[in-house]
Each structure stands twice: as C-alpha cells, then as structure tokens.
Design a protein around this nucleic acid. Sequence first.
DNA 1: ACAATTATTGAACGTTGTTTAAAAATAAAG
DNA 2: CTTTATTTTTAAACAACGTTCAATAATTGT
Lengths: 206, 206
Amino acid sequence: MGRKRQFLKQEEIKANILNAARKVVAEEGFQGLSIRKITRLIDYSPGIVYHYFRDKEEIIEAIVNEGYERILASIASVPRNETQPETEIKEVFTKYLKAALKAPEEYKTFLLSENPSILAKTSLLTKGIMQRSRTLQALGEVIQRGVELGKFTPCDPELTAQIIWTSVFGLIIKIIIEGNIPEEQIERLVEQEFKLLFNGLLARKE
Amino acid sequence: MGRKRQFLKQEEIKANILNAARKVVAEEGFQGLSIRKITRLIDYSPGIVYHYFRDKEEIIEAIVNEGYERILASIASVPRNETQPETEIKEVFTKYLKAALKAPEEYKTFLLSENPSILAKTSLLTKGIMQRSRTLQALGEVIQRGVELGKFTPCDPELTAQIIWTSVFGLIIKIIIEGNIPEEQIERLVEQEFKLLFNGLLARKE
DNA sequence: ACAATTATTGAACGTTGTTTAAAAATAAAG
DNA sequence: CTTTATTTTTAAACAACGTTCAATAATTGT
C-alpha cells in the first residue's frame, strides 16, 4: 500500500502511542483500553506497538506511573519540618487527595496493582509495598517528630504511619469508586478523617 | 410431576458451574476466570452457561455476593448493645477482617466494584454506596450509643462511621493486595488501627 | 409411541493481545 | 546516484475470549 507517513523520531511515536492511550483511558478507563483502539487513533496497525513497548502492560505502567508521579509532585511543595506536625500531615494529605481525585483512574490502578514492577519505583525496600513507599516514609518521620515534641502520644511511628496511610487510602479509593460525591461532602469527610486521626494521635493530658 | 426433579437438576448444574468457577477463581483470581475454563472443568460446551446465567457477570456476581454474605454472616454473632461500644466495634471489625482475609478475591471484587447491581443488596438507599451499607448503619448506631453514654466525643455518628469504615476498608484492601503479610504483622496493624481510632473517638477529660 | 419441551452442542461472529514473515521506508556505503 | 544494510511498519495469522444461534440430543407430557 502506498503510504506517506512522515518520519517521526522514536520518542515522538512512543509519545503518540501513550497520548492515544491516555485519550482512551480518559474516555473509557483502563478497562476499555486496547491496543487496537490506540493504533486506530494514531492511524497505525496494531503490531507497531510492540516495536516501542514490550506489551500492553508496559503502556499501562507508563501512564499510571506518570500519573502517580504527578500526584507525588503535588505534595513536594509542602515544606518539611517547618510547621506543627499535624499541620504538615494535613497539608500533605489534602494536596495528595486532591491530586488523586484529579487522576482517579491512575490512582486506582497504581495503588490497587499487585504488580511489583509498577510499585518498585515508590517502594525503597523490597520487603513490601506497604512498608516503605515514599509518602509512608515521610509520614513516619513527621510522626516521630510529633512524638519527640511531646505533641503525639508515644507510638511506633512506622506502624502508625502505615495505619494513617491505609486510612487515607481507603477514603480516597471509596470516594473514587463511589463517584459523583459532591465537593462539599468530600470536604466534610476529609475534615472528619483528620479530626479523628489527630484526636487519636494527640497526647492526652489527664 | 417431574418438574421438581428437573428443577433440582437445574439447580445442580447451576451449582456445578458456580463451583467450577469458584475453583478457577481460587487458583487464578477473577482475572483468570473464563467461560471456557469453567465448561472445560465440568465437561460441557461453552454455550451451556448461557442457559443458566445471563452472562459472565452474573456468575461473578453470584460468587462475589455469596462470599460477601459469608463475611457479613461472620459478624452477625456479635451481640448488639451488650458491651461497651468500643468493645463491640472492635469485635465486629476483627471478625470482619478475618473473614475478609479468608475470601480476599471476593472481598476485593465486591468492594471495589462500581456496579450498582452487585451492591444493591447491601446498600439500602440509592443515594450512594458509602452512605448506608449494612455494616455502616450498624456502626453508626454503635457510635451514637457511645456518644450518648458520654464515652465518645460528640460527633456526627454517620460521618464518623463512614470514616472508620473506610479506614478499616483501606487496611484490609492493602493487606490483601500486599499478600503474604505474616499473621503477626497483621495483628500489630489491627491493634494499632484500633488504638488510633478509639483514642480519636474517646472523649477527652481535660 | 408420538409429540412437545427442554438441554446441549458445535460452529460461528466479533473481539482481544501478541507474534512473525514480508514489505516499505530510511540510512549508510560505494 | 545506486546499491546495500538497517530500521520501521504492515498484513496476516494464532490462540483465547464472551456471546449467539440454528441444529441436535435428551427428556417429558400425553
């Protein structure tokens, strides 16, 4: 067949594939993503994908990782060790939650994936996902600071960080799955979440 | 006359299909479930399934609902309004968590599903999943009791129930996804979860 | 025993992810 | 500029999937 396709650099085509994939995901979710839909969108034949990606999984990983990196980037601006520990925690998680709700598919897919290759980038040790993600480690340090300041009740910072982290995670996932929860109700849920967690965290003066 | 026997036969085959499906799910998860695998297992041709079920989704629903019903049944034995609220909550969630970890695939699929038809059975109102599942409603009542008794700090019981629920949910999902977490570590996580939640819930005497 | 009903099959359709030999397009070499 | 080597792209095929449907086998009612 006579084809007139301009030459594109490898990276450009990779980007085109990813962008087409993102478009499909945005419209139909990862569930609705297929190689053929991607190549139909960029006017290539299906086989082309395997010249630039190992398999479909690698495409999903690329999109999902990029999405989660953006979420992590959104909390990078929060200054460390400059405010009260609870203020810092709240600020981080508020930004985190808002960023997650802006890329719900990516968040869901990233955090519900059991694929270690996806998660390798955020877990520093090999012992387990839950044990040492980036956010988790930072959270543990803040809690430790709170304990040292006498603000928080004595506890294992790492364990406590895990619990707070899974709690926030559970809320976000539920909000995403539920869908269509009004902004105002989300605000209330988040407010109550922090109220409960901090009340539980704060040292008691009896 | 032979209608009854025929009915039994029908139910039997339905059960055979479901059992075969359960076997596949147990070995490869819902992801690995296929109509052809089911019928290969019971030595039928693929089409047979559509005489007994609308589609694959209905099979998944059946298995998942049954699984979640078992989880709910496991907490039914906990007496209501007979112990301290926090004792009741802890007991319910401990049983709930253990039952969930015994049927992880079912738990995951049930609670991460956005399909309202699956969730219809446990959500009493149409307004939203998170708002009134069975466990959630009961939890709200216990919290209210705790508040009325002056044990818990004043709060919106329903909102607080949602937060506690999503927190526990997050922990369970993470444990399931992580996989292979030693029993002892799970115990510690659960212990810390309740410590934090109850500390946050308890009224402060200052 | 015959007719009516129901259970089951086998083949087909349109998907999907992925592989592979061939073809087309580009780069390198003479 | 032509020829060769290399890289990019395609078309076709494979196996597996969910699902449908006409045809057949089995069972029931009369």
